[in-house]
Amino acid sequence: MKKSQTGFTLIELMISLTLGLLISASVIQIMISNNATEGLNRALASAQENGRFIISRLRSELLMVGRYDMLSPDLNDDVDLVVEAAFVDNTPVALPGDFSNDLAKGSLEGATGTSDTLVVAFQGSEDCRGNTFGYDADEEFVVVNEYFIDGTSLKCKGFDGRVLRGQKIAVGNDANKAYTLLDDVYSFQVLYGITEPTATTDNTARPVQYVAADQISAAKTAGSQVVAIRIALLIKADSNMMLGTSSSFKLLDAEAITPTDKHLYKQFETTITLRNSKNTVRSRNI
């Protein structure tokens, strides 16, 4: 006896094809979603890594601001150290007009929508680029570092403070050559923590107010001193990851910023206590 053979009906084939297409579409969607998630994670990791690096770098350098030790055996003594100590103690954050050989050099409040410029002074053996300006190895002098945004890069320049003050002629190292600390920095904002005016007889040397660079001069006239620096940066992730919408960011006292593209951006902020300046302020009240 011959057995009849039967196959799939047309309806069964159509159902199978439909189910196969649905399953394939689901798998493809999961793969696309995983790729997008992976790209987002890479972008976040990139921004986070760059942010941690620059915050750590700036913190380690700015902790030295206001330092001056006349008793240090490494300090070069070719100038009047008492006068120089008074300058560094009173000018941890430099302003335009503080340096006779470069009256424009100093911390600046950026115009609306632009970044700030930070200029600081301290006793050290090299500037932010590792330059020694002709001094012997490990020999210390007054270092002046300038931090600013050039295009989309956070850069620094270093100077011999004695040259800026007209006490010596520049030796070696091109002070006008900027060193790039980090690329893809969209904004760099700075505020300065100042103490109470001397009239209050407050000797705690704690920051009671944070002001912009253009307010420091008036504060110093009243007897206040800068004892802390607050920094905020907006960093673009090193990735081609694009978001659906652009976010707005509010950095310190600056107006809200909305990047023109839809890349991933991340905001970083830190406050650095200038322990050397705090000790100087406290010593005045002993």
Rank of each mutant, 00 (worst) to 15 (best):
E255S: 08
I286F: 13
A94P: 00
Q225W: 11
L181E: 04
G193V: 09
F188S: 13
I229G: 00
F188R: 08
A256K: 13
T198Q: 13
V227D: 00
S33D: 15
Q48D: 12
D202H: 01
Y210M: 06
M1N: 08
E61H: 07
E139N: 02
T117H: 07
S283D: 06
L10H: 09
S60Y: 11
A222T: 05
L274N: 05
D78N: 15
S187L: 11
A36C: 09
A256M: 14
Q167C: 08
D98W: 02
Q48R: 08
P96I: 05
A212V: 15
K3C: 11
P259N: 10
T204H: 07
D160N: 06
Y210Q: 03
S72W: 06
E38Q: 11
Q215E: 15
L81F: 07
A36S: 12
L22R: 05
K157L: 10
E12W: 07
N101S: 14
N76S: 15
A175H: 14
N35R: 09
G7E: 09
A219N: 10
S246Q: 03
V93L: 10
I55F: 01
N90E: 09
E139D: 02
R52S: 07
T9W: 10
Y186C: 15
S277R: 01
A213V: 02
V88M: 04
T18F: 15
S26F: 13
A85E: 15
L251R: 04
M70T: 13
L44I: 10
E139W: 01
D78W: 12
Y210V: 04
I54R: 01
D150S: 15
I272M: 04
D214H: 07
A36I: 15
M241S: 03
A25S: 15
T204K: 12
N145G: 14
G166V: 04
M242V: 09
L234W: 01
F148R: 12
A232I: 05
Y135G: 07
L251T: 02
G172T: 12
A111L: 14
P259E: 10
Y265N: 01
I30N: 12
D127Q: 01
L233N: 07
A178P: 02
Y186Q: 14
R129H: 08
K266D: 08
F268M: 00
L191P: 10
G106Y: 01
S283E: 06
N90P: 00
N285V: 13
D253Q: 12
T114P: 01
G39F: 09
G20E: 06
T114I: 14
Y179M: 08
G193E: 04
T114S: 08
T204A: 11
T245Y: 08
L62F: 06
N285R: 09
D89C: 05
K2P: 09
L71C: 14
G172N: 13
D150M: 05
L10W: 09
I272W: 02
F53L: 00
V119D: 00
T37H: 05
Q225Y: 10
Y147H: 00
N50V: 03
L21I: 14
V79T: 08
R57P: 01
I229F: 01
L10K: 04
V211S: 02
D127R: 03
I231V: 13
N285L: 12
Q5K: 15
A218D: 08
V185I: 12
T280D: 06
D214T: 07
D102K: 04
A219M: 11
E146L: 03
N76I: 11
T260M: 09
T271P: 04
V88I: 05
S187Y: 09
R230A: 11
S224D: 12
F53A: 00
L19Y: 06
I286M: 11
